[in-house]
Amino acid sequence: MSTEPQTQIPTQETQEEILQLEILKPVKEIERKTVLRHVYNTLRSFVESSSNLSYSWNHGVAIERNTMLFEKRPKWRLIIYRDSGFFKLYSRRGNLVMDVEKKMEYDKPVTYIINIYNGDSTLSFDAYDENELRFKAVTSDAPFARPIRVIEIIDRLCEFARFGFC
């Protein structure tokens, strides 16, 4: 007679019970907007490019007194207009993919509008509530696409220039 404890092989049902996690904090779904592949690929390359200063795209060129150019050839070009607080991101094809504009109204706080140009349509995100931007994202039908949250784009822009969010 064996004295070893018998181990029970888990069934499919017990394996699923073991793998179930109970989430204890509130969870909010991301609002996803689908964009064209070249728009998505430009935004993803911009967001995921290294911040290491040894890379050329982290060194700007002063085109004019208040206009700076950063580019990762041949993926994207970022132009920053220092005097107006305006950003423009172009694709490798030279298409405007995104801009950020400063919105100022009398007796209201300064807000920023993030516009993503998607062919004939424009997706606009009002950045008055930075927390809300955590729950808004763009995605694509491109292979291996993941949602790119708008807050990731803002965080990346803050690595190039200090503005309302940074």
Rank of each mutant, 00 (worst) to 15 (best):
V100D: 01
E17Y: 09
S51E: 07
E48I: 02
D120A: 12
K28T: 08
R73Q: 15
P143D: 12
S51P: 00
I63P: 02
R162V: 08
F165T: 02
V97E: 04
E48T: 12
R134T: 02
E13H: 06
T34P: 01
I63T: 05
A145L: 07
R134Y: 01
S56R: 11
E132S: 14
I151M: 02
L96F: 08
P10C: 09
Q6V: 10
H59G: 07
I154M: 01
K88H: 06
M68P: 01
Q8Y: 11
A127Y: 00
D141H: 10
A137I: 02
N118V: 07
E4W: 05
P5N: 07
Q15W: 14
D155S: 03
I63L: 14
D107G: 06
F87A: 00
Y40F: 09
E16K: 14
I23R: 13
H59C: 12
R32K: 11
R146F: 12
I79A: 05
H59V: 04
K75A: 12
V110F: 03
T14L: 08
Q15S: 07
K136V: 00
T14M: 10
K75M: 06
G94V: 05
E4H: 11
N52W: 08
T3A: 15
R44K: 14
R44N: 08
A62R: 09
R134V: 01
K28V: 10
I9Y: 11
N58L: 13
Q8L: 10
C166N: 06
M1Q: 15
Y55T: 10
M1H: 15
I30V: 12
T3H: 10
C166E: 03
P74K: 09
V138K: 03
V61F: 12
L36A: 13
R65I: 03
S2H: 06
Y112C: 00
I153N: 00
V47S: 01
D107Q: 15
I113L: 08
D120M: 12
D83I: 10
T111V: 10
M104Y: 04
I18P: 03
I30W: 06
N41Q: 15
I80R: 00
S121E: 15
I63K: 09
S2V: 06
S2P: 14
C166M: 03
H59Q: 14
T122Y: 04
L53Y: 07
I18A: 13
T67A: 04
R32T: 03
R146S: 09
F46M: 04
E130W: 03
V27E: 13
R65F: 11
S124M: 09
R156C: 01
P10L: 12
F86D: 02
Q20C: 11
M104H: 08
